Amino acid sequence: MRTRAASALALLALSTLALTSCAGSRDSPRADDPSAPITFAATPVGDDPSGENPVQAFAALLSEATGREVEIVDVPDYTAVVEALRNHHVDVGIMSGFPSALAVSTGEVDAIMAWPGNGEPVSTCLVLDDSRLRTLADISPATTVAFADPASSSGYFMPLAMLQESGLTKDTDYTAMFSGGHDMSLTALREGQVDVACTSTIFPKRAGTNDPSFPFEKGETRSLGESMSMPVSVAVLADQNLPAETRDLILEALPQVFVEANAKRLGTMMEATQGTAPVSMPGTSMFQPFVDTAAIAGVDISDLK
């Protein structure tokens, strides 16, 4: 069964309408004004309500490093980030590897910095410890599997490829649903609304810590399997009309932002970089393994061209 990117395209279209009403065009004089805010498209990020929001922390740290105001533009998901960049509504966005490959594949968005993967599995498919499912082979058409978002690397694309390689085809060998986020997949699993929740390997490490992003104690969940690693963990994408001076300023600032001293403030955003050294101005070849793996999962990213 071949999964096209129709759902992603629908989200892109909806995002265009929303963003057109709340953001200016790059045709305005603001684009070349060095005193103008740097606009950053941000998706919802789970955080500890008692601590600093990672997105707010990133904006503050980037502002400090660049000497420019940083304005956060909230968008619902990764596909909305891509559309905001393609339509020149924001300057930059940060996304995980697969949606970054989607964006780069359009030829209308630039990747200005990327963090390679660390070679470790990035996704896991979890069940409750008392589940009758013991291995991936136990999954059947009656099994409901929760994914985070159609454009999520660790919450959809990578586990989808893992299941496909195990001989399990989406909507044929199991019933798939999109929860809207990693936290919502895990909540659905806890509440018994789904049998399996596929998510990032980051989250199970938080078991027993009272972290709201992983509402389980140690031993309450089990993994049925883990995905392969990703060639790119995170990428910073930019509007192609971004002035060179602003682009260079951001490139100089980012390595100052993503340092160990800021790890606690950046939370999940820092964890997502997987501790690797960033690559400035990565070429399209860095994202090619995603295109190759997409074929395994039956996802045609050329639909966004």
Rank of each mutant, 00 (worst) to 15 (best):
Val194Arg: 06
Gly219Tyr: 04
His89Lys: 11
Ala84Ser: 13
Ser50Asp: 12
Met1Cys: 15
Asp129Thr: 15
Ser213Met: 03
Asp303Glu: 11
Leu11Thr: 05
Gly107Pro: 09
Thr209Leu: 07
Ile38Tyr: 00
Ala207Val: 12
Ala13Asn: 15
Glu52Asp: 15
Phe178Glu: 07
Met281Val: 00
Asn210Glu: 05
Cys125Pro: 05
Ile38Ala: 00
Ala84Val: 08
Ala253Met: 07
Gly275Met: 05
Ala295Ile: 14
Gln193Tyr: 07
Ser15Cys: 15
Thr273Leu: 02
Thr199Leu: 03
Ala161Pro: 03
Asp110Thr: 05
Ile72Val: 12
Pro54Asp: 07
Gly24Ser: 12
Arg222Cys: 01
Arg68Cys: 04
Lys264Met: 02
Val90Ile: 15
Gly24Phe: 06
Ile38Asn: 00
Val196Lys: 10
Val194Asn: 05
Ser302Met: 12
Val127His: 10
Gly24Cys: 08
Gly208Trp: 13
Thr39Phe: 03
Arg190Gln: 02
Met1His: 15
Leu17Ala: 13
Ala31Leu: 05
Ser227Leu: 04
Pro121Lys: 04
Val299Asp: 08
Leu9Asp: 09
Gly219Ile: 07
Glu71His: 09
Ile112Gly: 01
Lys205Ile: 03
Ala114Asp: 06
Thr39Ile: 07
Asn210Arg: 10
Leu189Asn: 05
Pro49Asp: 13
Ala13Ser: 15
Thr20Trp: 05
Thr187Cys: 03
Lys264Ala: 08
Ser131Phe: 15
Met184Arg: 14
Val234Glu: 04
Ala60Cys: 00
Asp110Ser: 08
Phe216Ser: 10
Leu168Tyr: 01
Ile301His: 04
Ser140Tyr: 07
Cys22Tyr: 03
Met162Arg: 06
Phe58Leu: 14
Val234Gly: 02
Asn53Lys: 12
Phe258Cys: 01
Asn118Trp: 03
Asn262Ile: 05
Asp33Ser: 10
Leu128Gly: 14
Phe147Gln: 13
Ala244Val: 15
Leu14Arg: 10
Val259Asn: 02
Glu83Val: 01
Ala114Met: 06
Phe290Asn: 03
Arg4Gly: 08
Asn262His: 12
Asp48Ala: 09
Asp27Ala: 13
Gly275Gln: 07
Gly181Phe: 02
Ala101Cys: 15
Pro76Gln: 00
Arg206Ile: 08
Val194Phe: 09
Thr201Leu: 11
Val259Asp: 01
Glu165Asp: 05
Ser100His: 03
Gly51Pro: 00
Met230Val: 14
Phe216Arg: 13
Ala235Ile: 13
Ile202Leu: 04
Asn210Tyr: 09
Ala65Pro: 09
Glu52Ser: 14
Ser25Ile: 09
Ser123Trp: 11
His182Tyr: 02
Phe258Arg: 01
Gly192Leu: 03
Ala146Cys: 06
Val259Arg: 05
Val104Lys: 13
Val81Asp: 08
Ala13His: 14
Asn53Cys: 10
Arg2Leu: 11
Ser7Glu: 14
Ala253Gln: 07
Pro121Gln: 07
Pro282Tyr: 00
Gly167His: 11
Thr43Tyr: 00
Phe287Thr: 04
Val196Phe: 09
Val194Gly: 06
Asn118Phe: 02
Val196Glu: 10
Ala60Gln: 02
Arg247Asp: 00
Ser153Gln: 15
Met228Ile: 06
Asp48Pro: 04
Pro37Ile: 01
Thr268Asn: 09
Ser25Lys: 12
Leu186Gln: 02
Pro34Ser: 05
Glu52Asn: 13
Val82Leu: 13
Ser35Ile: 09
Gln256Asp: 12
Asp91Ile: 07
Val194Pro: 09
Val109Glu: 01
